[in-house]
């Protein structure tokens, strides 16, 4: 079954259990870090660090906040990295789970092009030019286990489930976050990894959201998808959509804003500069 993540950053305590669980499951080596004057460490994602809790101090509306953002690959439904690569032996998608996976054959690609194509600046290369990033713990998932980061989260801030359920879950959490907090809540929904944030996502990190120059408002939720142009990928896309066979698939294929009208009073449809992705800005 196609999977998605939902990450409620309003529940994240930055204990970084997810960050360590990720390293443990993937048996990734520790980096030799130094303290750079921040709790955030390693300072950035790397070839050996797929998950990183970004920690930002910010004064918003006169009140100090310490914002936590567990960063990882968004596993886009229409992954620009996959399209840029055009080489299924290097970057491919597991159609059963939706995980976007990199192999050692990424060494033959232009790493900078792949990284540049990612709206979220996620992939990282090693000295040999091989690219790596979060693999959704695909080996765990296809064996019926939760991804390591989801399993370890003490506050139930990270969820995984079928993509169809993610939207509903995001809505529920958004309501709770609004009810119990003086803080504003907004949400972001890329296709497979939805983030709920307490504040404008740009406060957390510069590439928390896709696309250029988007204004973020209170209580907004963004979705993004596009039918692929590449014929082969387009075929795969349609096969997967037909396999979904659900109301969700029909909504995706219709490509209009009607599925969101049930939820949001205001919807704005935008396109990224590349024209490869659509962005829905939704507000209650």
């Amino acid at each position: 079954m196609s999977k998605g993540f939902f990450i409620d950053t309003t529940l994240c305590t930055a204990c970084r259990g997810c960050q360590v669980a990720c390293k443990q499951w993937h048996d990734l080596p520790a980096e030799h870090t130094v303290n750079t004057g921040s709790f955030q460490n390693p300072p950035d994602l790397s070839f050996d660090t797929y998950k990183l809790v970004r920690m930002t101090e910010d004064v918003i509306d006169g009140r100090l906040h310490w914002l936590f953002f567990p960063e990882q690959c968004r596993h886009c439904i229409e992954p620009p990295c996959l399209e840029s690569a055009g080489e299924p032996s290097a970057i491919f998608k597991d159609e059963n789970t939706g995980a976007v996976l990199f192999t050692a054959n990424t060494a033959d690609l232009s790493a900078d092009d792949i990284i540049g194509s990612c709206p979220y600046n996620i992939p990282r290369k090693n000295d040999a030019g091989i690219l790596a990033k979060c693999d959704m713990c695909n080996d765990r998932v296809i064996n019926g286990l939760l991804p390591a980061c989801v399993k370890t989260c003490p506050t139930k801030g990270i969820w995984t489930s079928g993509t169809g359920r993610m939207k509903a879950l995001a809505e529920k959490h958004l309501e709770t976050a609004k009810r119990n907090s003086q803080s504003r809540s907004s949400g972001k929904d890329s296709v497979r990894v939805i983030y709920l944030t307490g504040f404008d996502p740009s406060e957390y990190h510069k590439s928390t959201m896709a696309g250029p120059g988007l204004l973020w408002h209170e209580h907004q939720l963004i979705m993004e998808h596009e039918v692929p142009h590449n014929l082969f990928v387009k075929l795969l896309f349609h096969i997967r959509m037909s396999m979904m066979g659900s109301k969700d698939a029909r909504e995706f294929l219709k490509q209009d804003i009607s599925p969101f009208k049930e939820i949001f009073s205001y919807i704005l449809l935008l396109h990224t500069k590349s024209g490869k992705s659509k962005l829905f800005v939704c507000q209650k």
Binding site: R16, Q19, V20, K23, Q24, P29, A30, E31, H32, T33, V34, N35, F39, N41, P42
Partner: peptide, 10 residues
């Protein structure tokens, strides 16, 4: 434990 030292090395 290197995974923990990575997080708070000093």
């Amino acid at each position: 434990q290197p995974w923990l030292m990575e997080l708070h090395p000093q």
